[in-house]
Each structure stands twice: as C-alpha cells, then as structure tokens.
Design a protein around this nucleic acid. Structure first.
Length: 675
DNA sequence: GTTGGCTCGATTTTT
DNA sequence: TCGAGCCAAC
C-alpha cells in the first residue's frame, strides 16, 4: 500500500508523530512543542495523503511566515517531489495564497489592475489622508502614520470594533476615536478608488470570497485537505478563512504550540488553538513532547522559562538527543564587548568545525545587531540578516516600483504623486494638481500623453515628462523585458538628477530590473515583491552558491520554526527582552517570555546567552547618556544555575567601583594591524 | 511653490 | 543616531 518514499518518511516517525501523519481525515490538532518534529510530521502527512491517492494539487499547505513557507515547501517537495514532478501541493503564506486566489477570482471581486500596497505604501496613504483631513495639526498630537496603520491592521485582523481596540491596545489614542474612524473610512474608500489592496485586504477579500455563497464553495472545492502550520499565531480572520475552506469535509490539520505564540501585535491570539477542539468537536488531538533538537541541559533552560508562563498547556519536553553541554551565560561589560565576544565565540565554533551558517545570532529587535554588524564587517565575517526590509524602503527602489505600478494601473494616484515629484520644479503641490488634471475620469495609459501636453506644467518638467508618458504609453504593447528596458531608460535621467548619488542608485536598480524582466507580468512582479521582499539587491545577483558560508543574524520572530547547531542570543537584558514597550500590559510581558522561550529552543548543540551590563545610549532615557542595565527578569536564579556563567565584563564580575568609573574616550586598538 | 538646511524627537516584532 | 517635520531663502 505504501510507496517506498513514504515508508521511509512515516517509518522513521515516533508513535505520536505517526498517529498524526496517518490520521485518516477530519479535524486534527497537533500540539507540538519546540523541536518535536512538527515540520517533519506535517511533511510526512503530506506524503502519506498523496500515497493514499489524494492529488497533490488538492492539498493546501498554509504557513504564517515566508521563511516557514519556504522551509516547509522545500522539505515537502524533497519528500514527495520525485513522483509528482510537475504537479504539487498548493502552499505558501496566508497572504500569498490569498493573493493568488484573489487574482483568480478578480472579476467576481470587481477588481481590475490591482496595485498591491506594502506597509510603507499603506502608511503613506494614511499620512496623505491625515494631511487632507487636517488632522496633522491637532492641538494634541494625533497618532503618526505608523501607529495609525498598526491600529487599522489590528482592528481588521481581530475583526473587532475600533473603539475596543483603542481602549485595549492604544489607550493614548482614545481621545481621537472619532477622527481615527473617519480617517479609516476615507482610507478604505481611497484604496478602492486607487484599485489598491493592502496586505490586510488580501485576508479580507479572501475571507469575503470564501464566505460568499456562490464563489466560496467553488474555492473550497479545490482542496481536499487543508494543513496549517503555526496555528497558535492565527488571528480571527484566518480562523474563519480556514473554517470556510474546509467547511464541507473538515479535513483540516493544524499544528502549533501555544508556548510559541509571539504575534499578538498582529491580532493573533493563542486562544484560537485552545478553542480548536470546540470549533471542531470531532477533532483528534495529538501531543508531541519528545524533543529531537536539543540536549537536555539546553532544554532545561527553555523549560524553566516556560514554567513561569501564566497560561499554557502543561508541557515538559524531554530530550531524545544526548549531550551534556550546558548553556553559557555571558555577562559583558557593554555592547561593544558583547559584539567582540560574539565574534570570538562564533569563530571558536568555526574552528571546531561548524560552518558559519550552522550558527545564528538571535535578537529581540532588528537594530540590536547594529554594533555587531560593524564588528563582523571589521573582522570580515560574512553574514546575512533576516528580519529587516530595508531594501524596499530605499527611495530609488520605491521610485521604480511606482513606475511599474502606473504601467499596469494608470490610475494609481499615489504612485503618480511620487513619480511626478522626481521632476525638477514639481513639488507636492504641483504633483497633486497634476494628478487631478491627468487622472480625472480614469484615463487609459494612451490618453495620458495628450493630457500632459494640454496641462500647465512647470517648464523644466515639460519635456522629460512628455518623454516618460510617451514611453509608458508606447511600451504597453511590448513584452515584459522590452518594456522594462524602455521604462528603465526613461527613468534613468530622473534618478540621476533627483539624487546626488544617482549613478550608484541606478546601478543598484539593475538587478531589480533584471529580475522584473524575467517575470510573467509587471503586476505579478510587484505583487511578489510586496509579498516576498528581497533582503537586498544582491539577492538577485544569482542563487547563492552552495559553498558560500555566512553567519545568520535574525530577529527571534523570524527565527521561529528554525534551528541551528549553535545559537547566540544577544541583549538579554531588561528593556530589550522584555522590551520596554511591551510592559504596559500583562499579555505583553507574557509574550516577551514566550519570545525568549522561542530563542532558547533553537539550538541543536550549544546555546550562548549574552547580557551587556552597560549601555552608552539608552533609548528614551532622560538622564545621562549611558546607564547600567539589569539582566532580563526572565533570567531567574534557577535559570542562571542551569547555565555556565562566563564573565566578559573586564573585571571580577561584580559592578564594583572600578567598573563604575567613567570609561576613557580614547581607545587604543591595534586589531586592524593584525588582520 | 520648491528646495535645502536645521532642529527636535522618537525609537518592536511581520505579511 | 537617524529620520521626519519645520522654516527660511530662492
């Protein structure tokens, strides 16, 4: 009955895993602790289902983060790929699957020529409306665009009343409830006028589609089985989407660990995983507690953190792997010392045979690695950083994307507003005026050159603008690659004159243009870019060579579900983890605790926890420029007792009078001579 | 209206 | 430390 491939996969599972993987059908909840073979089990289940005769394309595999999606799909592909060559399991993040479905159903949803907004675009539009509605200059400070987007997103994803969300999560904004509500109404209206969808809209439209009496059942009928990873991080909208997708057959398998719920700020709620059995009364529950990742001494540290959680399933992970190395707890004099200590220890691991990419440095916030990145570059240790999206935020990249957007969606006013300001003599006011003149009545691309000729344009912008519009219109019939070549040529002079380092920026764009030229359509390319942004332009330079070795830097959020041989967790001090900003609520503190738990349960062999004792620029501190920090409150005495304590604080370890003495500004460092 | 210079202030996590 | 927003000069 079983094909050899799945013999190999199912056969190597433990009893609980096998029970989950070979669950015949109907709702299944897999409560999987960290490192208990969650992904393995889910992939084995996919293989098993295919063996049972389920066509791969009728299996839907949903994950939460892009990295998890990539990991899961590549593992599943490796497991079953050989026999299903071209057809494969449908899968990806909720958002990417939503986008594909929406595109498929676009006519029914009344969508045509969609622009997909990333978070920055959405914030910019909110900012624009904030100006228009004259909310920017209120007596008391009105929330800024980023905050507004957070509020909006949370309200939509939790499917709750704005007023409730404000009171609960943004109490300092409650005074402006009315204004914010009005602003959000304007925001949704404007998005519709612009033919734009933001990331939350993807879920909203999918939700609406699957809930629709006519389309819903047709979409749901595409899939026989729905599998969801990281179910502890779903929000109300996603719960309903999953429910609608498998309403008929209830062939839904979800995996999760409530102790690893870390997306509360996106309206995820671990209550959903706890409620799964009541939402699906027929549900089978399987618990995985045998940890195959870390040796017991490392697991003990994680268990100690988990023990203090106020609300979670009782769990105790036991190690299947041998090993007696305890975690190292490293007290560092300051951030600089922490950075050099990390480098030293990373290189030491490497001496002992570990590749750099078998090691990861994990942190609470993206900027926590700033100093470390400098030190790594100085010592010429290559690294890749996950968790930041700087590239798409670069002005020239946004310019190019705006151009690609108007090429496929000529009425995207926001993109025009941006592009027009690249011309000499056109600022915000003229740009707004020209947008109105050019776009009124939703003209097609081919009508725009004429409107430009008839409009009142600042002299310096007339010629170059004509050229750009002519190119846009004329290239519409060309293939993607040819069109891009023309658009790029038209954009180049604008970039050159708009930025002092324009030439460099143009070089930087080459890679992106090249990648776009290979895409099936510009619209599709921009959407992919928003859903799965590259870390840098270098990512397009070619597939990273197999022999390339680099250290991984990652936020804890982006590290979830992944593992490395050696893990270094930095900035484990109060204020960083738990983050100051999270402390206003009890749930906030609990989520920080789970975050540390996630970090501590990543390593396969060794775990190093770093605590800087002193900070030179403490954010938000009014007093002096530097201060002493306290080790994270999660580093309980019992936890410390489970670790080997290392002092890298330049003294005997105590913060005695010497350590408190001011540190001289003059530093003599000869390292650079000995590289 | 546009642009460049300057000061002030705020600072998480992801799709 | 860096970016956003304000103000003054072209």
């Amino acid at each position: 009955m079983f094909a050899p491939v799945s013999h190999a996969s199912v056969g190597s599972l433990n009893e609980e895993q096998r029970r989950a993987a070979t669950h015949p059908g109907g709702p299944l909840l897999i409560l999987a602790g960290a490192g208990t073979g969650k992904t393995t089990t889910l992939c084995a289940r996919v293989a098993w289902l295919i063996d049972q005769g389920v066509p791969p394309e009728r299996i839907l595999l949903l994950t939460f983060t892009r990295r998890a999606a990539r990991e899961m799909l590549s593992r599943a592909r490796a497991l079953v790929g050989a026999k299903t060559s071209s057809r494969f399991v449908v899968g990806g993040t909720f958002h990417s699957v939503a986008y594909r479905t929406i595109l498929h159903e676009a006519p029914l949803l009344g969508l045509d020529g969609v622009s997909l907004f990333d978070a920055a675009d959405a914030a910019d539009l909110l900012d624009l409306l904030r100006e228009e509605n004259e909310l920017a200059s209120m007596e008391r400070r009105f929330p800024r665009k980023g905050t507004l987007l957070d509020i909006y997103s949370r309200t939509v994803n939790a499917q709750r009343e704005l007023s409730e969300v404000l009171v609960e999560s943004f109490p300092w904004c409650t005074d402006y409830g009315e204004e914010i509500a009005g602003l959000f109404r304007a925001y949704t209206t404007r998005k519709r006028e612009l033919n734009a969808l933001d990331l939350d809209d993807l879920l909203l439209y999918l939700h609406a589609a699957v809930g629709d009496a006519r389309v819903g059942s047709r979409i749901a009928a595409r899939y026989e089985h729905v599998l969801v990873d990281e179910y502890q991080d779903v929000n109300a909208l996603q719960v309903e989407i999953v429910r609608a997708l498998c309403g008929e057959h209830e062939n839904v398998s979800v995996v999760g660990d409530d102790m690893q719920a870390i997306y509360g700020f996106r309206a995820a709620d671990p209550a959903h995983i706890l409620d799964f059995p009541s939402l699906y009364p027929e549900a089978t529950v399987v618990k995985l507690e045998r940890n195959y990742r870390s040796p017991q001494p490392l697991l003990d540290a994680g268990n100690e953190v988990a023990m203090h959680a106020t609300r979670s399933f009782a769990r105790h992970l036991t190690a299947e792997r041998g090993g007696s190395a305890r975690p190292d707890l490293i007290f560092c004099l300051d951030e600089q010392r922490q950075a050099s200590e990390v480098c030293d220890r990373v290189l030491a691991c490497r001496e002992q045979g570990a590749l750099l990419r078998d090691q990861a440095v994990l942190m609470r916030a993206g900027h926590h690695s700033d100093l470390l990145e400098l030190e790594l570059s100085r010592r010429m240790i290559p690294f890749v950083k996950y968790g930041g999206l700087r590239y798409l935020e670069a002005a020239h990249v946004k310019d190019l994307i705006a151009l690609l957007r108007v090429a496929t969606n000529p009425t995207d006013e926001l993109s025009w507003f941006r592009l027009l300001q690249l011309f000499d003599g056109i600022g915000p006011v003229s740009a707004k005026r020209l947008c109105d003149a050019l776009l009124c009545g939703k003209p097609s691309l081919s009508e725009l050159p004429r409107r430009w000729r008839e409009a009142d344009i600042p002299a310096a912008a007339r010629e170059p603008g004509q050229l750009l519009l002519d190119t846009l219109a004329a290239s519409a019939s060309s293939g993607v690659a040819a069109r891009l070549e023309q658009l790029k040529r038209a954009l180049a002079p604008l970039i050159r004159s708009a930025y002092p380092d324009g030439e460099m920026r143009l070089v930087d764009l080459e890679q992106l243009v090249g990648a776009a030229a290979a895409a099936s359509s510009l619209e599709r390319f921009v959407a992919e870019l928003v859903l799965d942004p590259p870390l840098s332009s270098a990512e397009y330079a070619g597939p990273p060579g197999r022999d390339e070795d680099y250290l991984v830097l990652s936020t804890i959020h982006s590290a979830k579900g992944l593992e490395w041989e050696h893990v270094h967790v930095i900035h484990v001090s109060d204020g960083n983890i738990p983050a100051d900003m999270a402390l206003s609520t009890k749930e906030g503190l609990e989520e920080e605790r789970r975050l540390l738990y996630v970090a501590l349960t990543r390593p396969r062999r060794s775990l190093s926890i770093y605590v800087p004792l002193r900070y030179y620029h403490r954010p938000r501190s009014r007093d002096d420029a530097h201060g002493y920090s306290k080790p994270s409150r999660f580093l309980t005495e019992r936890l410390q007792a489970l670790c080997d304590v290392v002092r890298a604080d330049g003294g005997d370890g105590e913060l005695g009078p010497d350590a408190r003495a001011p540190i001289g500004r003059i530093e003599v460092n000869l390292d650079r001579l000995f590289r």
